[in-house]
C-alpha cells in the first residue's frame, strides 16, 4: 500500500548545523494497518510525515502509494488522497469561515474550479449526521465561524475534514498534543472510531508510549532517521512501556530522550 525505499533527507547540508533527518529509511505498510510511531526528539518522525505528505521532496529514495510513484508529486495533489492532521488545531481549519464552509471545501476537494455553489444543501445534511456522532453539539452550529470553537472541537472538525473525502492514507502528527486531557481523550476516541469504521490505513506519531502500544495494530520506533524497532501482533501485545524503553537503550545505545515521554513515564509510575 505505502512503500518507502531508501528515503534520505538532510537539512542545512554543508553547514555546521547539518542534520540528517532521514537516513535511507525503508518502510512498508499494508492496507488497513494502523501504525503508531514513537521516537526521541529529532528522530525524524515529523520529517517522515512531511516527506510522505509532500511538504518537501526527498534528497534520494522513493515513495509510492498504492503502486503509484508520488516521490515528486506536489503537496496539494497528494492531499487528494492523503489526509493530514497537525498538532496545532489552528492549522487545519479556516477560522473566518463557517463550519459548513470548511467541511464543504474538504468534501469537494476533487471539484476544483467548480462554479457550483460551495455549500450544497444535501451535503450539509450529511455533514450534520457525521458531526452528530461526535456528541459535541457541532451539528447545530453549522453557520458558526470555526474561529469560535475550542481547540478540541476544531481538532475533531479537522479530523472529519481530513477523512470525509475518503483518503487512502491518514497521517496524524501528535494531533491531540495541544489539547487539554479531556479533549485529547475525546479526539482520540473519535480517531479510533473513524479509522476502524472507514478501515483507513493510518500512521500516528505520539509522544505517549502507552497510547502507542494500545492504539493501532503496529508500532515502529525511529532513531536517527531509521526504523530501529518494528513490532506488531503478539510481540506487540506483550510489550510493556518499560520493556520498550529497555529495548530502545539497547538498540540506540542511549536512553530515550524525549521531554514529553519522560513525563508520561513518571506519571505512569513505570
Amino acid at each position: 500500500m505505502l512503500d518507502i525505499t531508501g528515503a534520505s533527507k538532510t537539512f542545512l547540508q554543508g553547514t555546521v548545523n547539518e542534520h540528517v533527518a532521514l537516513n535511507r529509511l525503508d518502510l512498508h505498510l499494508d492496507a488497513g494497518e494502523f501504525v503508531t510511531i514513537v521516537g526521541s526528539n529529532g528522530a525524524g518522525k515529523s520529517t517522515l510525515f512531511n516527506a510522505i505528505g509532500g511538504t518537501f521532496y526527498l534528497d534520494s529514495g522513493r515513495i509510492s502509494l498504492e503502486s503509484r510513484d508520488i516521490t515528486y508529486l506536489t503537496e496539494h495533489k497528494r492531499a487528494a488522497f492523503i489526509g493530514r492532521i497537525f498538532q496545532d488545531p489552528v492549522k487545519g481549519t479556516a477560522p473566518d469561515m463557517t463550519i459548513e464552509e470548511n467541511l464543504s471545501l474538504a468534501y469537494n476537494r476533487r471539484k476544483l474550479f467548480g462554479l457550483n455553489m460551495g455549500v450544497q444543501k444535501k451535503d450539509v445534511v450529511f455533514f450534520r449526521e457525521q458531526l452528530s456522532q461526535f456528541g459535541m453539539g457541532l451539528e447545530d452550529r453549522m453557520k458558526h465561524k470555526v474561529g469560535l470553537l475550542s481547540g478540541g472541537q476544531r481538532q475533531a472538525l479537522t479530523l472529519l475534514m481530513a477523512t470525509i473525502a475518503g483518503p487512502r492514507l491518514l497521517l496524524l502528527d501528535e494531533h491531540t498534543a495541544a489539547l487539554d486531557p479531556a479533549a485529547a481523550e475525546k479526539v482520540m476516541a473519535i480517531t479510533r472510531d473513524i479509522v476502524s469504521r472507514e478501515k483507513l490505513t493510518t500512521m500516528m506519531i505520539t509522544h505517549n508510549i502507552r497510547s502507542a502500544l494500545r492504539t493501532g495494530t503496529r508500532t515502529i520506533m525511529l532513531e536517527d532517521g531509521k526504523v530501529i524497532l518494528d513490532i506488531s501482533g503478539k510481540e506487540r501485545e506483550e510489550m510493556t512501556v518499560s520493556r520498550l524503553m529497555e529495548l530502545y537503550s539497547h538498540k540506540a545505545n542511549k536512553t530515550l530522550d524525549n521531554d514529553r515521554m519522560l513525563l508520561t513515564k513518571d506519571e505512569n509510575g513505570q
Binding site: 496539494h76 489552528v90 471545501l105 475534514m161
Partner: peptide, 12 residues
C-alpha cells in the same frame, strides 16, 4: 484565511 488548510484540502 489559512493556506495550510487549503493545501491540505488539495487546492492549489
Amino acid at each position: 484565511n489559512n493556506e495550510d488548510m487549503v493545501t491540505a484540502s488539495s487546492i492549489n
